[in-house]
């Protein structure tokens, strides 16, 4: 169970005027400015749920996670996670949580992962038999049995992430915080990690809070989504409600045999061209999909086309340009 009310965090940053004169000036006198990373924030997550925290870079997702894990002390507000206040950094609390960060590693770079695991075994006081069993289970689930004795620096990014995840789960945490667990991975590795998280959650019924800026992560894992923009919660609810925000539009990509001029047929569907005009991306309402596609296939030299849901980048861009969409969606929810 995770609850927080009016949680916020301000950071101080220092400003420098450009150029040598500015540097010289700031050598003697520095001006500081307060920047709010997270504005008063409320959330309630029941036990056993997976919730996705979505938002562009710098929206405050990571800061929020860091306040939940007790790494960063909040500037104000209250947090209660499984009966603890994270900022107090109670040892019993730290034994029950886990943190995975896609961009950082807790493994010792120049050692095989197994050595790092043994260190973690001591940290979390895991009995030898439980430890062996746990390592065996997780290694099988992640298919990394052969990687545990290889130096971490020699692993690929995808392999490293698997081992990283494993290291965080050895102590059977009740609450797991995953900060961008699939960042930088190729599509197959991303899918493997997602699959693992889903299976793991299914077996262990732990609470998981996941941040990402890949929609696919959230879609695959979470039933509930929280969208943050500039440190504020802008949407909290069902994932289908969020993806329907832009109406029932499909994203269709057409590849052409050769360079194509702007065509009146395409204009109503918000065309995005590539540089040499051989590929265009369109947003077509669901109910007109068939009709429009057929017309385009007839009029233009199409070699290939495919449809997909709107990528998160475009949903977010649209949402950010038109925040009113979020409010109406929130009301419906």
């Amino acid at each position: 169970m995770i609850t927080c009310q009016g949680l916020y965090k301000n950071f101080k940053t220092y400003q420098k005027e450009p150029g040598f004169a500015g540097t010289l000036k700031s050598f003697f006198k520095r001006e500081y400015e307060t920047k709010s990373a997270v504005k008063p924030f409320d959330i309630e997550i029941p036990e056993g749920e997976i919730v996705g925290l979505l938002g562009p870079n710098g929206a405050g997702k990571t800061t929020l996670i860091k306040m939940f894990t007790g790494i960063v002390v909040p500037s104000g507000g209250t947090v209660n996670i499984i009966g603890f206040n994270p900022a107090k950094r109670d040892r019993r609390y730290r034994k029950k949580i886990a943190l995975v960060m896609g961009q950082k590693s807790q493994l010792w770079w120049d050692l095989p992962a197994m050595d790092s695991f043994q260190l973690l075994q001591r940290y979390y006081e895991i009995a030898e038999r439980d430890f062996k069993k746990r390592v065996g289970e997780l290694a099988e689930l992640l298919d990394v049995q052969k990687l545990l004795n290889v130096h971490v620096r020699k692993l690929s990014l995808g392999e490293r992430m698997k081992v990283e995840l494993m290291s965080c789960l050895l102590h059977k945490p009740e609450v797991i915080f995953l900060d961008e667990p699939t960042i930088g991975l190729d599509l197959i590795a991303q899918r493997n990690i997602r699959q693992f998280i889903r299976d793991y959650h299914h077996r262990n019924h732990c609470t998981i809070l996941l941040t990402s800026h890949y929609m696919a992560d959230v879609e695959a894992l979470c039933s509930r989504l929280v969208f943050i923009l500039e440190g504020e919660k802008r949407f909290d609810g069902d994932i289908t409600t969020f993806s329907n925000l832009l109406g029932s539009e499909k994203n269709v990509v057409f590849d052409f045999e050769n360079s194509v001029e702007e065509h009146p047929l395409l204009i109503p569907f918000d065309p995005h061209w590539n540089d040499d005009h051989t590929r265009v991306e369109l947003r077509i309402p669901h109910n007109r999909l068939k009709e429009v596609t057929v017309q385009i296939l007839e009029c233009l030299p199409v070699v290939e086309f495919n449809t997909e849901k709107l990528p998160i980048e475009r949903v977010m861009k649209t949402v950010m340009e038109n925040p009113a969409l979020l409010e109406s969606a929130q009301r419906e929810n």
Binding site: T69, G70, I71, R89, R91, R92, R94, L99, Y123
Partner: peptide, 15 residues
């Protein structure tokens, strides 16, 4: 600087 301290802070031992 690189935030590695984060991992030490979530461990159940004295940071």
């Amino acid at each position: 600087r690189q935030g590695g301290l984060d991992f030490l802070l979530v461990k159940p031992a004295s940071s």
